[in-house]
């Protein structure tokens, strides 16, 4: 089922976003205000079901992605663009890690083994989580998703790879890849900051949650000092409406219909403003990489394209 908003004329949809000043994008407002401004149109049925414990989770989104579960790993299925994008996620993370003078390995942490600890939020079928777990530089990957149907797909797929099933380095108990049916709100936060994660990834997720600011507030807590929060999303522009909604979903059909709600897209400068204001300067200056999907060639990095379409953003937690 698609959100009713998608049938609202473009003029009305844009009209509900543009009036806000650039520094106060609608998604930055707290949930209570946000509800009052947008829920009447967007979530007639599900808005009342939100509880504080699952503020980020939208039931419509979950059912949409659950319906795609069976085709998640089909290389020629609807998730093909995600599969093709995955190597770029690693390239971007590597560029983030290499950029910081205090790389995670040089900052004190409680890793018993060498290597990075990843938390993948909204892991879906596990495209990124599996690949991160296979990297020789990885100690462990914890991957969470609210949809049990998709997690069943992710677990069944990981079972096909002995490298993901086996325990790392022969240690008993600690698997390299762990899937948990949790939301970021329900996942217990390690009390000691140094026990938190080296890399927290949120790929193609923030455009699917209702209250991105509250969501990112919670996600940020899981990054240990010196670690990185890495996300990818889509800028809210005329170009992105044309490419991701009209062309990709309606005309070409490379992305399943109803996957994207353009209204939820977040611009790169909005995220920059968010991190600059957050936690009293405990976040570094974000790194950004814009990417463009070229049918037949896959994803290509295009400088400046973060202003108009898909982009990655990485930000280091300093303190």
């Amino acid at each position: 089922m698609r959100p009713p908003l998608r049938r609202v004329p473009v003029a009305l949809r844009t009209a509900r976003v543009i009036p806000h000043s650039p520094t106060a994008a609608p998604w930055l407002q707290p949930p209570s205000q946000r509800l009052s401004t947008t829920t009447s149109i967007r979530h007639t049925s599900s808005s009342t079901s939100h509880s504080p414990a699952s503020a980020s989770v939208n039931e419509t989104e979950i059912s949409h992605f659950s319906a795609l579960a069976s085709s998640w790993w089909d290389p020629h299925g609807p998730s093909r663009p995600l599969h093709l994008m995955n190597p770029l996620r690693h390239d971007f993370i590597q560029s983030c890690l290499a950029s910081s003078p205090s790389s995670p390995s040089s900052v004190p942490h409680n890793n018993t083994t060498d290597g990075l600890r990843y938390l993948d939020v909204g892991c879906g079928g596990g495209i990124f989580a599996e690949s991160a777990a296979r990297l020789p530089s990885t100690a462990s990957v914890t991957a969470i998703d609210p949809s049990p149907i998709i997690l069943a797909v992710a677990r069944a797929h990981a079972k096909r790879d002995p490298a993901l099933v086996a325990t790392r380095g022969g240690q008993e108990g600690k698997k390299s890849l762990t899937y948990l049916s949790e939301t970021i709100e329900s996942l217990p936060l390690p009390p000691n900051p140094v026990d938190r994660f080296d890399v927290v990834s949120v790929f193609e997720v923030v455009e699917h949650v209702d209250y991105p600011a509250a969501f990112l507030d919670r996600v940020g807590e899981f990054v240990r000092p010196g670690g990185w929060l890495v996300l990818s999303t889509i800028a809210r522009t005329w170009t992105s409406w044309l490419t991701t909604n009209l062309v990709a979903e309606d005309l070409l059909g490379v992305v399943p219909k109803g996957t994207h709600d353009w209204h939820k897209y977040i611009n790169e400068d909005e995220l920059r403003a968010y991190f600059a204001a957050k936690d009293g300067g405990r976040w570094g200056v974000p790194r950004v990489m814009g990417v463009v999907y070229v049918p037949g060639l896959g994803w290509k990095e295009v400088k400046g394209s973060e202003k108009v379409g898909n982009y990655f953003l990485g930000v280091q937690r300093i303190g």
Binding site: P136, P162, A163
Partner: peptide, 15 residues
Amino acid sequence: RRRGAFVCRSCTQIL
């Protein structure tokens, strides 16, 4: 000795 092998020997033995 190499950590993080796709299928390291110890993993195989466990398997």
